[in-house]
Amino acid sequence: MNDGNIVNDLTVVVELFNVYALMLLFIGGFVLWALNWGISKASLKITEKMPTRRFLILQITTLVGFVLYTVGTIALVIGVLQPPKEFMLAAGGSIAVALGFALKDIAASLVAGLLLLFDRPFRVGDRVSFDNVYGEIVSIGLRTVRLQTLDDNLVTIPNSRFITDVVASGNAGELDMMVVTDFHVALNADIEQAKAIVEEIIVTSRYAYLKKPVTFAIEEIEVGYRLAIRLRAKAYVLDVHYEKAFQSDIVVRVSKRFTEMQVARPG
């Protein structure tokens, strides 16, 4: 009786996965990939024309790709193979048990991916710090998150890591972001003069977002075994893509102005 059941199951499987069905599955899988690729390319072109809506467009693209692959794969398998109900239940149970043991890490990442899409601790386009890696989130996939560092390295991180580890988002979905830059002057320097110089340089930078205030945190610290004054300037860049350009601009110009105005530096 058991041998007969096994033979019947094998016969059902062979009938399902015939050459015609496999060809349709391959073509359908290629169509899903092509659609997702086309949507991604179209979204990039739209972001170039609507840069202020870049984050929203990228988030919608990520969600559409996720739904497309999930729903499309299920529809493709059921529509092409049309397996019997009993076979689907039996196969589903067996696959679930096997995957539960063999692919528990991947399953955890898939579940974490769903949580990331709905809980949204960060979004596509955000600048985040995670485990000593800093960069921009370029995609949130079913299994991994891809992060582009400022050195143009693409870092791939399993989704499950973001559920248990701490991640910091610098702009939380906004186009602008705070940039913190430190300047050091000697103890005998005119602090008010130095602060005024830094603030003037920041507000005249073409990268500055002036709808949010420029603030300072001033404290005495040790620099090269000597005490000095640290001026920590906190200002906003108008687009996260200009973060380092903004910081470089103000550092170069402030250093030049300090020299011209003979502001005493630690040394």
Rank of each mutant, 00 (worst) to 15 (best):
Q148K: 13
L150R: 14
L150F: 15
D151M: 09
D152E: 08
V155F: 07
P158L: 12
P158I: 10
P158H: 04
N159P: 14
N159C: 15
S160Y: 15
F162S: 02
F162A: 00
V167W: 02
A168T: 06
S169R: 00
S169D: 05
S169E: 05
N171F: 03
N171S: 09
N171L: 01
N171H: 01
E174V: 00
L175T: 06
D176G: 01
M177R: 05
M178V: 14
H184A: 09
V185G: 00
A186C: 02
A189E: 08
E192A: 12
Q193M: 05
Q193Y: 09
A194G: 10
I197Q: 03
I197W: 04
I201K: 09
I201W: 03
I201E: 13
T204N: 15
T204G: 09
T204M: 13
R206F: 11
Y207F: 14
Y207Q: 06
A208F: 14
L210K: 01
K211R: 07
F216M: 08
A217I: 02
I218C: 12
I218Y: 03
E219A: 11
E219I: 04
I221C: 13
E222F: 14
V223M: 15
V223D: 08
G224L: 12
R226G: 00
R226P: 00
L227Q: 12
I229H: 00
R232Q: 10
R232I: 04
